[in-house]
Nucleic acid binder design. Structure first.
Lengths: 348, 348
DNA sequence: CTGAAAGCGCTTACAG
DNA sequence: CTGAAAGCGCTTACAG
C-alpha cells in the first residue's frame, strides 16, 4: 500500500496542493465546498501526513507544556518526572519536541491556578499534567477542551475529563505486592506495622490506595494472623520519628515487619539502623538514592518501584504520537510494579 | 548551535554539494586531494547528517539481518526475540527499517554456517545475532569485519570480536536473585532442590551461570543450612519428570524449595500440582504463558524475568542509532532482572 | 573527476 | 478564495 500524499488528494479534488494543505490545517480562506470535497477525499484515501517531510520543512517544533508539583530534596518523587520528560525528548529526536515546564507548589491551589493560566497563555500544542487538585484540574481541562488543546494525565486519574490518555501507577496493586512479600517471609503470628509518613502530602491519595491494597491482600488470602498496626507520623524529623517509633515498639513487641507506604522509607530505615533492630522485615516504595543505600545495607528488604520517571516519558511519547498521527494507543495504562531487592537492584 | 549541512561543507571546501556527498558516502570518483579536504572540514564542523532529510529522499531503507535459533512450541524463548525486533521496527517508524530473519536449528553447526553464508550474500547494512556457537560465530564475525558490516550480539557475549554492542541477560545475577527469594521465605534448615531441565539445551551456558549465581548467594551470605541437591532431567516428557521427581522426594523428604533453572519451570509445576504437594516454594524463570498459569494458581511462587523480548528490541534500536549517527551508546548492557509473583504479574 | 538539476512530501509566503 | 514557486537537507541520475 503506497503512501497517500497531499498531491494525490489535490489531483483527485482538482485543486492545488496549497489548497489541500489549507483545509488540512484549518488555515481558513477556503470555499466551504472545496473544503468538504478535500476532506472527503482525504478520509477516503486514509491520508496520513508524512511526518518526516513535515519535520523537514520549517523544522517544525512540537511545543508541549508539562504541569506538576515542584520537586526538591524533600520531594524527590517529583524531581523524577522532568527527567523522564527529558528522556522522551531525547528518544524522539530527530524531531523537535519542546516541553516547557510549569511547577506548582504542592497543595497550593492558588499557585496551581496561576500556572494553568500561564500555560493557556503559552498556547502549547499539548499538555501533560498531574491533576492532583481535582476541582482546579477539572476547570483547567475545560479550558483546554474549549481551546482544543489535547492533554494527558500523569500520576493521578480523575473522572469526567476528556484526557487523551492516562499513565500512572496502580497504587492499590502496589500495596498488594508489598503485602505478599511481607507475608511470604514473615512468621504468621507476627504483627505488621504500617507507617504513613504523612508529610509526604505529595501523594496522599496514593498512600491511601496502597494501604487499601495492602490490607486487601490479607483479607483475601486469610494469611498472617498477627495484628496490623497503622500509624501516621506527620513530619519526617528524625527525632520525632525516633520518639514515635520507640513508643510503638515498646507497646508492641511482637512486630516482625514494617511497611512504609511512601518513598520516605529511608527515614524508618535510619531509625532501625540507629536502634540496631534485627530480624525486622522492612518494605517500602521507590528506588531513590537514599532508599537504595539502605537496601544495599540490608536494612530495607524490598522496595516496590513504580517507575515514576517512565510515566512522564510515556506521556510525552503518547502526546507526540497523537500530534503526529492523530492516533492514541491505549487510554489508561499502569506502570509495572517492580520488586527490587539487594540482588537485582544494580540491574535497574 | 546550528546544524551543519553538507552545503556548509561544500562552501568551505569550495566544491559542490554533490562532491561532498560522494566523499561522505565513499562513492568514489573523487580526487584524493578533494576528498581529504572535504573530510577534514566535515570533521572540523562535526558534521552529522540530518536523518530526517535522509529518510525523505529516496525513502531510504535500513536493511538488517537477524540470526538466532529457531523458536517453537518446544523453545518459546527464541520465539520472543522476533517479536522484540518487530516492536523495534514499529517504534522506529516513520523510518524504514527492514529486518530479514535467519533462523538456525539449535546446536546445528552446519545449519548455522549455512545461514551465515546466506546473510553475507544478502549484504545487510547491519547484523544482530546470537553467537551461541562460539567457534562458528567468531568466524562469522571475521567475515563481517572484512566486509565492514557492523554487528551486535544478543543473548550471549563472546570475547575477541569487534561487536558494536551486546545486549543480554546477567544469568549469574539472575541466579542470585532466585536464591535470595528462596532464602527469604524458607526455613533455614530446609533443603533446596535445583532442577536442570537439560533438554533446554538452548541455553545451557545460561543455566550454568544461573546455577553458579544461585550457589554463590548461599556461599557469600552463609544463609540456609540445608542441603543443595542438584539434578538433571534430560527430557521434559511428563512421565520421566514424574518418575525422577518421585525418586528424589522419596530419598530427600526435607526439601522445602525447588529452583528450576530454565523457562521450563511449568514442567515441575505440573508435577507438583499432580502430586498435590503443599508448602513447597517453587521458583523459576521467564514469564511464559504456561509459567504464568502456574504462577496464578499459586504453584509457582516467583518467576525471574529477564525480558528476552527487550534484548533484541534494544539491539535493533542500537543498530539503527549506529547506522544513522555513527554513535553507539554503551558497549555491554544487561537487561534488568524482574521479580514476578502473583500480585504484580498482571502489570507486566 | 565535478557540478547542476530534479525530486522526496510538506509548508510557507507571495501573487493574483 | 486559489495556485505556483521556493525551500527544508539530502540523494540520485545526468551532463560535461
Amino acid at each position: 500500500m503506497k503512501q497517500v500524499r497531499i498531491k494525490d488528494i489535490a489531483e483527485k479534488a482538482g485543486v492545488s496542493i496549497g489548497t489541500v494543505d489549507r483545509v488540512l490545517h484549518n488555515r481558513g480562506e477556503v470555499a466551504a465546498e472545496t473544503r468538504e470535497k478535500v476532506l472527503t477525499i482525504a478520509r477516503e484515501l486514509h491520508y496520513q501526513p508524512n511526518i518526516v517531510a513535515q519535520a523537514l520543512t520549517a523544522k517544525k517544533q512540537y511545543n508541549l507544556a508539562a504541569l506538576m508539583p515542584r520537586g526538591g530534596s524533600d520531594n524527590v518523587f517529583w524531581t523524577l518526572h522532568p527527567q523522564g520528560i527529558e528522556n522522551a525528548i531525547k528518544s524522539l529526536r530527530p524531531f523537535y519536541v519542546d516541553v516547557r515546564f510549569f511547577f506548582f507548589e504542592l497543595h497550593n491551589e492558588v499557585d496551581f491556578v496561576e500556572k494553568t493560566r500561564e500555560i493557556l497563555e503559552y498556547q502549547p500544542e499539548g499538555v501533560i499534567f498531574a491533576p492532583i487538585l481535582k476541582k482546579e484540574s477539572l476547570q483547567f481541562c475545560n479550558e483546554l477542551d474549549t481551546r482544543n488543546i489535547p492533554y494527558i494525565f500523569i500520576d493521578t486519574f480523575i473522572e469526567n475529563a476528556n484526557c487523551l490518555s492516562f499513565v500512572g501507577e496502580d497504587a492499590y496493586q502496589g500495596g498488594r505486592v508489598a503485602a505478599s512479600l511481607i507475608d511470604y517471609g514473615l512468621l504468621p503470628q507476627k504483627d505488621i506495622l504500617i507507617v504513613n509518613l504523612a508529610k509526604d502530602l505529595e501523594n496522599t491519595q496514593h498512600l491511601n490506595r496502597r494501604n487499601q491494597g495492602f490490607m486487601s491482600y490479607f483479607l483475601d488470602t486469610g494469611k498472617n494472623q498477627g495484628m496490623k498496626i497503622t500509624v501516621e507520623i506527620p513530619v519526617s524529623d528524625p527525632k520525632e520519628v525516633e520518639e514515635r517509633m520507640d513508643a510503638i515498639f515498646q507497646s508492641n513487641p511482637n512486630i516482625g515487619a514494617i511497611l512504609v507506604s511512601s518513598a520516605k522509607t529511608h527515614a524508618i530505615a535510619r531509625y532501625i539502623e540507629s536502634r540496631r533492630l534485627k530480624d525486622l522485615i522492612l518494605v517500602g516504595y521507590e528506588l531513590t538514592r537514599k532508599n537504595k543505600e539502605f537496601l544495599k545495607k540490608g536494612i530495607i528488604r524490598f522496595l516496590i518501584g513504580q517507575k515514576p520517571m517512565k510515566q512522564s516519558e510515556k506521556a510525552v511519547k503518547r502526546m507526540f504520537e497523537y500530534l503526529t498521527t492523530g492516533q492514541i494507543s491505549s487510554k489508561r495504562e499502569f506502570q509495572p510494579v517492580e520488586i527490587i531487592n539487594v540482588e537485582n537492584v544494580d540491574l535497574f
